[in-house]
Design a protein around this nucleic acid. Sequence first.
DNA 1: TATTGTTATACTCTATAACTATA
DNA 2: TATAGTTATAGAGTATAACAATA
Lengths: 150, 150
Amino acid sequence: MEATTDAEGPLAESLAFRLTVLGGTMQREFALHLKEAGLTPKHLGVLNVVDRALARTQDDVATLMQVTPGMVVRLVDRLEQRELLQRRRDPVNRRRHILTVTADGARVLATSAAFAATLDAQLVATTGTALAGQLDQALAALMRTLTGSR
Amino acid sequence: MEATTDAEGPLAESLAFRLTVLGGTMQREFALHLKEAGLTPKHLGVLNVVDRALARTQDDVATLMQVTPGMVVRLVDRLEQRELLQRRRDPVNRRRHILTVTADGARVLATSAAFAATLDAQLVATTGTALAGQLDQALAALMRTLTGSR
DNA sequence: TATTGTTATACTCTATAACTATA
DNA sequence: TATAGTTATAGAGTATAACAATA
């Protein structure tokens, strides 16, 4: 009766489960790196989507990052205090806050990109260049569905 | 002077960063699925490492999952309350608690594996079978380094 | 003296829901 | 009436550090 436990293969071999585990490990690395700046991975995520023009307003950020509007407020609050992000009212629709990354914000993104590059180097060293290239393609395909096929 | 911002390529194209984002998405899915059982993805992680014999004691779990001993206590507390995991003293070294997955715990793992399979199906549908196969290989290589090359 | 696990404390993250203002 | 954002509250997660028991 072991068909009950492994009907679809063990959990540990699922793509989704391993993505969760490895994503958690990577997130921990980013968290450690960002700690000195008083930021979390989510703060970096906000900077990134705004910088990449995937999100223009707080509402955009909430939808794209799947977080509540209330959390976006707090994330943006801190980023604004640190002068990494700027809020300004949309003259066209005064309910909206348009977000822009400041020069300091761009610097945080650059530093984090450099840090990410060192993590990538470790990943490539583990998988080898061939597999890393294919990992890159697979992740790109998956990211496209998250950002709405852009 | 834009070499300053993109010296190593943009953050959004980093393998590590995308693993963080996608891992977060998958984690959210698992969290939603586990909510009705009153569990979190970390609880599932504990069940998994114990079931796979990657961890025998609470200390093993803490080391492997990179969480503090105090958190393992609370995670195991809940799993034990729900009768998904059993604690018993190691007769050889009475400081240790040996963990074993109960029949109910195995059932949770099975249900979660089935759920993971549906997530996997979505992932495969997005990337195509060829890329999914290579994603599988890359993730396997990366997981081996996490579990100590076992 | 080191290891394993527990507890206490405080802090952060997060979700929910009520609220303000704009449209 | 619907949208964008804010605030308040409460609950869950987490880290730190002090502690107890065992080796």
